[in-house]
Design a protein around this nucleic acid. Structure first.
Lengths: 107, 107
DNA sequence: ACTATATATTGCAATATTACGATGTTAATT
DNA sequence: AATTAACATCGTAATATTGCAATATATAGT
């Protein structure tokens, strides 16, 4: 098996889990922290900064792009990766909604 | 190789990624939503509610316990799983700190 | 055109995750 | 004491993820 049974969950649950999953790797957390600290990003900086092979960084960037958290623009022979601010807030809001809905008075 | 290189990241980055990772599965999102909706929880309810085998649910609960998001108390022959409210707020705060630190003016 | 630079893609090995049946464990019930 | 109920744990198969070398692609500079 080993396959997540997405069919039995709602779209919202799957989406939420998908955000969490993409953020669930220290390299991707580190990339987001670095990019947001810089206000601009060049991928080769990340390779030096983070200490993973270029292919690996590129892969992580791809996943962050897949949920639209990062947007990349070609700038000559470089790529400029930036935080997608609208999406960023949107996700933050969704996570807060998720967290705010917990009321646990038992135990 | 398939192993996350945790050594090259800070403890904070690893911890943050760990929360995200645990939350990064729709079954665990669904469990948290259900538990927080109920104000009390019995595991057998979850098996019916979610539609995964009992062993699978039990495994997911274990992971949620591993980051202290859920606490379980023995209640006779049943288990009462509840949201750990302090931890819950703590994590929410950490996530918001993470999200609030992004300032992206580029592109 | 050639070369160097920056990034993406592919292929693959190592390891992790997901799911579940089978089997333990513990406590209430008979 | 035997049985049932409610989990937990183990073992294992299927699949996913991580990481990197090798290779492809695309652009800038010579």
């Amino acid at each position: 098996m080993g396959v997540t049974k997405t069919q039995i969950f709602t779209d919202k649950q799957n989406d939420l889990a998908q955000f969490f999953k993409v953020l669930g790797h220290p390299a991707r957390v580190a990339i987001l922290q670095y990019v947001s600290k810089q206000n601009a990003c060049i991928c080769s900086d990340l390779v030096d900064e983070i200490g993973l092979a270029q292919a690996t960084i590129s892969q992580h960037l791809k996943e962050l792009k897949s949920i639209n958290l990062l947007k990349g623009e070609v700038e000559g022979k470089r790529m400029c990766y930036c935080i997608n601010v609208e999406r960023w807030s949107e996700i933050q809001e969704q996570l807060n909604t998720f967290f705010n809905n917990a009321k646990s008075n038992c135990c």
